[in-house]
Design a protein around this nucleic acid. Structure first.
Lengths: 249, 249
DNA sequence: CGAGGGTTTGAAGTGCATCAAATAGTGTGG
DNA sequence: CCACACTATTTGATGCACTTCAAACCCTCG
């Protein structure tokens, strides 16, 4: 995190943000204030590598805006994208359980605003603050559920179905009727996120359009009928539509 | 869990087992005793379905011996095996975070001894016992790390490499030199666990033998050279051999 | 307008799945 | 101890999904 991107703004915005993010909302106001003061804000541009897998982790991070790709890669450059996260999400919060090392590499994919906090703070709370720990645990439980489903999806769903599932999770599943959504980031990245090649994504999206009557215009996609889409994609999934509570991230 | 499999043995064995399993070792002796008394032991045979995905979960379980397959399936019968677990492992311990429902289905694949405990006990400890919760959290952190790598492996490794990686994790990675291992369960199950078809497994194992000079005799496999095996498999992985701490389960 | 990245399309190859059948292995009852 | 039934495993042939390589297209932005 380069020093010259440090802002001189007051700490109030960090503080109000922390109040809304679940593990930190359990902190005492004083302690939260302390954390806010320790936060280092930066505005890394697209392409910026924030940290690398297995490097020592002095910080954990809170994304305020933008998008960040989390990934691991092999020596010969093949890379596995484990997640692409945005505002409100934590990053490297598992480092305390990984010998204080980063569990993945991180690269900014849409210009972001990110706050770095000392990992020591997190470790202290986890060892001394039961309500905080419980909240952290609940977060992690959600993540685990999501990962479980992710593995399932990669086994059971083919490329068009994985895309359809992804699109459904971008929809407002409480509403019925047509709705228009925007891909939150590059198609190339969505492809990587779903574990397929860009070319496969392109072709699979065409296939999905033919099967489910969605309308595609660049990054804008109109879901004409959620039922038709879910009938096609959720056939290869253990959960029924609407996908109870898997909607975050 | 059928009633007639309930044993009349004393509770001491349960108690000593609980002392060794990490979240329960943090319990007070009195509380642990209480839990042991509430445990229901059963000896389900191979093929027994213990519970189904999304069903209400009155219990969580501790496997004492045997093997259990955890999976989810679609309406048309396709199934995704998420894990195959054995003695010392917990099952359905995430139910409290899933509206008290089972997060997967479970089937005994090798005659097992299983202890069922009231989910309410677990929930109570998680809400009232910080050391217990922290221990639970640490377990979960390990699981998450494992799932992360699992997803990575499914993206980056081909079938022979996934098998090689699986075999390496069965080895004593601290020792070098040849060693003989046994597949812990059916090849068909290993295949499912690794997300491939039995036929693919068979052919991929042959390929692996040709590439790495392992020797195969039914379920018995001799690893003549771990280095050669890891050179072949770990090339498509972000972690280096020996795979730090991914060895459990 | 031109450069460069994102996206699509085409052609060909690879890996894994599928279907079918043979073989090996295991437990059972005679 | 053997024959049978049944399951696990292997092998073969074929098909499909996805990848790979290559090139065209498109769009945005300097």
């Amino acid at each position: 995190m380069s020093k010259n991107t440090q802002t001189v703004e007051s700490r109030t915005p960090i503080l109000t943000l922390l109040e809304q993010i679940s593990p930190f909302s359990t902190l005492s106001p004083a302690r939260r204030q302390e954390l806010a003061l320790a936060g280092i804000v930066s505005f890394p541009p697209k392409g910026k590598i924030l940290f690398l897998y297995d490097d020592p982790a002095p910080f954990f991070y809170l994304i305020k805006t933008g998008w960040v790709k989390l990934f691991r890669e092999t020596l010969d450059g093949a890379q596995a994208v484990t997640d692409i996260i945005t505002g409100g999400h934590l990053m490297a919060e598992m480092a305390p359980f990984e010998q204080d090392r980063y569990p993945y590499s991180a690269e900014v994919v849409e210009a972001a605003e990110i706050i770095a906090f000392p990992l020591s703070f997190l470790k202290k709370e986890l060892s001394q603050n039961p309500p905080f720990t419980l909240s952290f645990l609940q977060n992690l439980a959600h993540v685990r559920a999501r990962l479980d489903h992710e593995i399932e999806h990669r086994v059971l769903q083919n490329a068009p179905q994985r895309i359809g599932c992804f699109l459904l999770r971008l929809c407002d599943q409480t509403r019925s009727g047509p709705q228009t959504i925007h891909l939150p980031y590059d198609k190339t990245l969505v492809a990587a996120r779903l574990g397929m090649q860009p070319e496969t994504f392109s072709r699979a999206l065409t296939k999905l359009r033919e099967e489910t009557h969605i309308r595609i215009n660049g990054a804008t996609i109109e879901i004409t009928c959620q039922e038709q889409l879910s009938a096609y994609t959720c056939a290869a999934c253990s959960s029924e539509f609407p996908c109870r509570d898997l909607m975050r991230s």
